[in-house]
């Protein structure tokens, strides 16, 4: 069988004396949607930032489609769609202008770039606002612009940091459907605070606390350890604290 799409290999990040991520290893294969859970400050975002090649690891490394994010960052990033925490975008650009920029940065030119932008806007229902400056959009639209940017090049690996944060229930539902549609062909990591989301879209869940992996199981297995997922999550993360 082919290698895993995402390989996280003894990843460690220290900020001074504080260890944010402590010797974390796991892999994600195509077709897996990994829910990345943990309390605030547990190291979720830092792990994702290292995987995306933004934060340099203190030790260990990660590979995306076999490309090392430390040694071959540009090659690794080509296979990656990344939604950073808070879905940052350039506020003065229009939706179409912004997506056009990311398409060009990913090497698309001319009509192919146009098609990519168009498809990404269609998938995230952004067509009606395509000529509006991003700063005039609601939080839900801004989040979808971030998602569109991550999906634009149809990457085999998607890393989404809180993709449904700030969305209303209908928009959350749409994003979950979108994730479910893409799931079979991609390896995905989704961080979230919403535990019901894990049961709804994830095939596997990792709980992280104080920078360490403290549980790695399917959402059903995790939920079976107690009365419900919420209780299990609280128990697990309290023990680690």
């Amino acid at each position: 069988m082919d290698a895993a799409h995402i390989e996280i290999d003894r990843l460690t990040k220290r900020f001074g004396a504080f260890t944010a991520v402590d010797d974390v290893s796991f892999t994600v294969r195509a077709g897996e949607v990994l829910g990345f859970l943990g309390p605030n400050g547990a190291g979720k975002s830092t792990t994702m930032k290292m995987l995306a090649g933004f934060v340099t690891p203190s030790a260990g490394t990660a590979r995306i489609m076999g490309e090392d994010v430390v040694d071959r960052p540009v090659a690794a990033k080509r296979h990656l769609g990344f939604l950073p925490e808070g879905a940052p975008t350039y506020p003065e650009m229009t939706v179409q202008g912004f997506l056009g920029f990311t398409a060009r940065a990913r090497g698309y030119r001319g009509s192919e770039a146009g098609d990519r932008v168009h498809d990404a806007m269609r998938m995230t229902s952004l067509e009606e606002v395509r000529l509006q400056p991003i700063e005039t959009l609601s939080k839900g639209f801004k989040r979808r612009v971030g998602l569109a940017q991550a999906l634009l090049h149809d990457p085999p690996v998607l890393v989404l940091d809180e993709p449904t944060d700030g969305l209303d229930p209908n928009q959350k539902h749409e994003v979950r459907n979108l994730i479910a549609r893409m799931a079979p062909s991609k390896a995905m990591i989704i961080s979230t605070h919403i535990l019901e989301e894990v049961g709804a879209v994830c095939t596997r869940a990792i709980v992280i606390a104080r920078g360490r992996v403290i549980a790695d199981a399917t959402p059903a297995e995790l939920a079976a350890r107690g009365p419900d997922l919420d209780t299990v999550f609280r128990e697990l993360t309290r023990e680690a604290a």
């Binding site: 995306a52 090649g53 990656l80 350039y90 990311t102 990913r106």
Partner: peptide
Amino acid sequence: RLGTIELLLTLPIA
């Protein structure tokens, strides 16, 4: 300040 540096530097450009 905007956090867009995280976006810019995770695009496949050196």
